[in-house]
Nucleic acid binder design. Structure first.
Lengths: 154, 154
DNA sequence: TGACAACTATTGTCTAGGCAATTATCGTTG
DNA sequence: CAACGATAATTGCCTAGACAATAGTTGTCA
C-alpha cells in the first residue's frame, strides 16, 4: 500500500527526544536569526521585517482590501490597521476608499514605496545568500521540498 | 581550492527572487504553524510555547541565574523576570536566593513543574511527528543538517 | 421598503517582548 | 577599608500583536 520504501513510521519518541537540541529549537533559531539579519539589513531604511512582508505583497499589485491582505499573510486585522497607519505615516503606502464597496479600503504603494522596493529585495537576497552559503542548488531545492512537505502535513 | 563539487556560487539573485514564494516566507510559515500547533496542544495545561522553552530548560537541572537562562534561550532579561513571575504564580517554578552571590537567583522546577514535564515532551513530540509524517529518518537527518549549516553560516 | 445577516475597518484592552535606567551586590584595586 | 567598575535582577516606558466589541456598509429576503 505504501510505495515509498524509506518511510519510517515512528520518527520521534517521548523517551528519546531531547528538546534542547531538537528540531523545533533548531528551526526557531534559524528563523529568528534570519529575521534579525533582515532587520539589521533594513535598519538604514527604517523598515522592519514585519513591514517588509506587507510592502512586498503590495509591490505585486494593489490589494483590494486590508482584510484580504490579512488572510494572505495571516495577520490580525487590528494589527494590520495600525501597521498600515505606520506605513502611511512613512509615506510608503496609500489608503484609497473603494468606490464600489465603501466598506473596503484599497491599498497601494506610493511612488516612494515603489522606489524602495528594489532595495528590499536586495536586502533579503543578501541575507539568504549569506545564510545559504555553501549550499548547492540541489540542496536548496530539497530543503524547500522538505519545508513544503511539512506545510502539507499541517 | 574548493573540493566540494556541487557548490554553486550565486544562489539567489535580486532579478529572479520572488519574495512571495521564497525561502524565508516558507521557513516562517513552518515555524509559525509548529508554534501554533504546540500552543493548541499545551492549551489544556495553560502553558504557552514560550513558557515551554523555559520549563524544558529548567527540567534538565536547576539554573544558577536568570541571566544564564536568558543567554541560553536568547531572551531579554526584563522579559525573563516577568516570565518567571508568571511561572512562579502558576506554581511551576521556584526562585531561590543564591547564598554565595546574593545578586543571583537560582531557579528550579517545583514538584508540580516536574510533574507536567512529561506531558510537555509528549506534546512537542506529537506535534513534530505530525508535521514530519512521511519523512524517512535519513531525510530528517539531512533536514537537521541543513538547518545546522545555516546556523553555522550566521 | 425594511429587517436582518454578513462583511470591513477600526478601536480598546490585554498580554508580552525590547530597551534603558535603577538598585543591590560583588570583586578588585589603591 | 573605601572607591570604583562590573554584574544580576528588577522596573518603567515604548512598541506591537491577539482578541473582543463597535460602527459603518452591503446584499438578501420577506
Amino acid at each position: 500500500m505504501d510505495a515509498h520504501p524509506a518511510v519510517a513510521p515512528p520518527l520521534y519518541s517521548a523517551k528519546t527526544f531531547d528538546p534542547k537540541t531538537g528540531f523545533g529549537r533548531l528551526l526557531s533559531q534559524v528563523k529568528m536569526e534570519l529575521m534579525e539579519a533582515l532587520d539589521r539589513e533594513l535598519a538604514p531604511l527604517d523598515i522592519t521585517g514585519a513591514q517588509y512582508v506587507i510592502l512586498v505583497t503590495l509591490a505585486e499589485g494593489p490589494v483590494d482590501s486590508t482584510s484580504g491582505l490579512c488572510k494572505g499573510v495571516s495577520y490580525d486585522p487590528g494589527a494590520m490597521t495600525r501597521m498600515i497607519d505606520r506605513l502611511e505615516r512613512k509615506g510608503l503606502v496609500r489608503r484609497i476608499r473603494c468606490p464600489d464597496d465603501r466598506r473596503k479600503i484599497n491599498l497601494e504603494l506610493t511612488p516612494e514605496g515603489k522606489a524602495v522596493y528594489p532595495r528590499l529585495i536586495e536586502s533579503v537576497v543578501a541575507v539568504l545568500n549569506r545564510y545559504l552559503r555553501g549550499f548547492s542548488r540541489d540542496e536548496i531545492a530539497q530543503f524547500e521540498t522538505f519545508l513544503k512537505r511539512m506545510l502539507a502535513n499541517g
